[in-house]
Write a protein that binds this DNA or RNA. Structure first.
Lengths: 348, 348
DNA sequence: CAAGTCACTGCAACCGGTTGCCATGTACCG
DNA sequence: CGGTACATGGCAACCGGTTGCAGTGACTTG
């Protein structure tokens, strides 16, 4: 950013692609010399290199990654596959992935798995483009998906995926079970007793694990009354609809742990409409700590998922596993923490 | 979606890449025959094609796009360049771009211009990857940026860009000036007289045009009192901060036209904190109609930007201009409309 | 039945770089 | 001073497909 851009009043001139051999001819050297001049670590004399660099810049030469990939086998492209294009948290995720990859000289080839593109198409497509590796960023799809990439010979990391004791594919994320335990523990510490889990779609792998952890703690307390229900999607509308349904079905719980911030915000909106005060009448605890959670007017107390760590670690892992293809699959989990804001009553 | 995925209990087998010549050998034909079998419109006999397809599927062959790009000159990759990774509306934008491109067999190579990546780096990078074209999606950066891609020989479309009478580069977006006029007209029609423009960063090209259109109408009404100010960014925090500043500086206007929905939401939050009722005390009109605008609790009256049309048209335009590189630059503008919700008082 | 079409096929060159191998030249060693 | 080590640089083959060209055979057409 901040660079200056010419005002561009002249006519636009279009340059045609320049090849390595043209540079070689102009610099009076062999093609191999040019190639080596652009290969870090190759052996070229200083004066030859200077001549080549001069010729290259005069001609506006930039080497074709695709041609070199043909022999080196490295495209420096990473397939970035996701189906979560509706949860605002994923804009942050894409932002950080693209920057992290760019910083390492890698390029994200983006694949949207939510449209007509089936998994098998995505796999084949990424093979055809010879991507060096794949980052599969999805909190809702099961590990089998990531596995398909691996079977196709593509190193893969499943980010925000489900933990497994003996993972078949690389996985980076949070321990959803531990997050569920943390949530339940937090609600109890605030003195809530009639508590509820308001999860995302019950088919989502993350939902199941969070619920399991939540119940694990809740079941140790005899005085607890726990209920659970599931929204149709990780979305505002689904969260709002589910909370409306709950309010219509009977008296609300004292506090809800929602499987996602955007779900929480939907639930908050339903509570506000019903005239219930948060946190006076009902407590809400979210999960993710997306940017919006700290907006005044929302001010959501939430379980923070360390997104930056997950992403940085995912990139590390995909890079290391493409350098050593026989590296065994690995699971990297990060801990969560509570971000205290205004939707739970204070600790007793 | 909805496809079934095997449960994958067996060990993961990794396949190594299969080449065209291996398929040829197995099918007992020449390499050219295989190539032609995979080229639509090429002339291959039915039985040879069958033999080739059999061999290919037995071997799990998928042709390398990169190798073919070397001779055809088409990678079917489109650079998708943006710097707007913080406005939630852009998640919708990315979603629609990726799907639209995928539907046409194109692949988005995503470039994040907001980090350390300078414009010149992005241009060179996309040249090195031989992308067929570039979509530059930014509402904040000037047309000079898009022009740099064109100069590098890359067909480009500036989506959400600034209108120009004689465009040097392809541009698809809304007529920001007309949007400003629409906004002002709407406020007057509601009986507001002391009105204000609360724009994004005053360096953003879109802001200037919207303000110009806004004033154009406002200045035709003698009874109008118009003021204007600018938030530091297109963000919640910036909108909130700017509205707080305005409220601290004196009595508020009767209604504000904010340059963006997320800015509006920030402004709403400041108004709520100040105990002002919307639309009772103050009216707010946004721009974009992002998903969040219709959330209960926000319910923002806003100028709708036809994002789907802009994106579909951008893709059309980049495709047609890469098929005919000498096509003159074109500007395609779409009209905006008012989406009536709850932050302006009703028409008198 | 001869000539002309046309669909199909393989050969070989080519797309734009990379790299193993060998030749050359210089520096350094004892 | 002979000999070795090492840096440098060109040749040519190769990465995985594509395509112009020419050749083959089958099928029309008059």
């Amino acid at each position: 950013m901040g660079e200056t851009v010419g005002h561009g009043t002249g006519p636009v001139k279009r340059t045609s692609p320049v090849t390595l051999r043209e540079v070689a001819r102009r610099a009076g050297v062999s093609p191999s010399a040019v190639s080596r001049a652009f290969t870090p670590g190759a052996s070229v004399s200083a004066q030859k290199r200077a001549a080549i660099e001069l010729a290259a810049s005069e001609l506006g030469y930039s080497p074709s990654v695709l041609a070199s990939a043909l022999t080196t086998g490295r495209t420096k492209m990473i397939g970035l596959v996701s189906n979560n294009f509706h949860n605002p948290i994923f804009l942050e995720v894409f932002d950080q992935f693209t920057r992290g990859l760019q910083d390492r000289g890698l390029r994200p080839l983006l694949v949207n798995l939510s449209g007509d593109m089936a998994l098998a198409d995505a796999v084949q497509m990424l093979r055809r483009y010879s991507v060096d590796g794949v980052i599969f960023a999805s909190s809702t799809l099961p590990p089998d998906y990531a596995r398909k990439f691996l079977e196709a010979g593509l190193p893969v990391v499943h980010s925000f995926g489900r933990w497994s004791a003996r993972p078949e594919v690389n996985i980076v994320g949070i321990d959803n079970r531990a997050a569920g335990r943390l949530a339940a523990g937090t609600l109890f510490a605030r003195g809530y007793r009639r508590i509820a889990f308001l999860g995302g779609p019950d088919s989502a792998s993350s939902t199941q694990d969070r619920l399991a952890g939540f119940l694990e703690v809740a079941n140790t307390r005899q005085e607890a009354q726990v209920t659970s229900s599931f929204a149709a999607a990780y979305s505002f509308d689904a969260g709002r609809a589910e909370m409306q349904r709950l309010l219509g079905a009977g008296p609300p719980a004292q506090a809800y742990f929602c499987g996602d911030d955007v779900l929480s915000i939907g639930a908050l909106s339903a509570l506000a409409d019903a005239g219930l005060d948060v946190p006076g009448d009902v407590g809400i605890l979210g999960l993710n700590d997306m940017e919006m959670a700290r907006w005044a007017g929302i001010n959501l107390t939430t379980v923070r998922q360390p997104i930056a760590d997950i992403i940085a670690s995912s990139i590390d892992l995909v890079v290391s596993s493409l350098n050593d293809p026989d590296q065994p699959a690995e699971a990297r989990l990060f801990g969560c923490s509570i971000v205290e804001r205004g939707t739970l009553r204070p600790r007793l």
